[in-house]
């Protein structure tokens, strides 16, 4: 199945260095893949992913992805109270 994939800030730089497209790109993944499985496939450590947006909402990393989902990987470093009020800290720890 297909998802749309984005990576931000340090994760984007890291993936770009490896030649992995990560700005609004379609990716094929297996059925039953969770966000964390997907992060593991990309070999990104916690240093590069604090939280995951799925379809515009920060979700737990063990959330299973579905056909057509939009996923964005967010590294540590979100300023303001937004790390709190978007649920980045809370969901990032789940």
């Amino acid at each position: 199945m297909h998802i749309t994939f984005n990576a931000f800030s340090f994760a984007r730089n890291k993936l770009k260095e490896q030649g992995i497209p990560c700005v609004n790109v379609a990716r094929e993944i297996d059925e039953g893949t969770s966000a964390q499985d997907f992060i593991d496939e990309l070999e990104l450590s916690k240093k590069y992913v604090e939280a995951v947006f799925i379809n515009g909402t920060v979700m737990p990393k063990d959330t299973v992805l579905h056909e057509g989902d939009r996923i964005a990987l967010l590294p540590p470093g979100t300023p303001g109270s937004y790390r709190l009020i978007l649920g980045i800290k809370e969901m990032g720890e789940r």
């Binding site: 931000f8 800030s9 340090f10 909402t57 920060v58 967010l74 540590p76 470093g77 979100t78 978007l86």
Partner: peptide, 24 residues
């Protein structure tokens, strides 16, 4: 801290464009 020590010096407050955009 990853925000004040790394994120802000590397991308400035403008790192928020993609984050807030993604959040709708």
């Amino acid at each position: 801290n990853p925000i004040s020590g790394e994120g802000l010096p590397a991308f400035g407050t403008n790192v928020l464009v993609n984050i807030i955009n993604e959040a709708g």
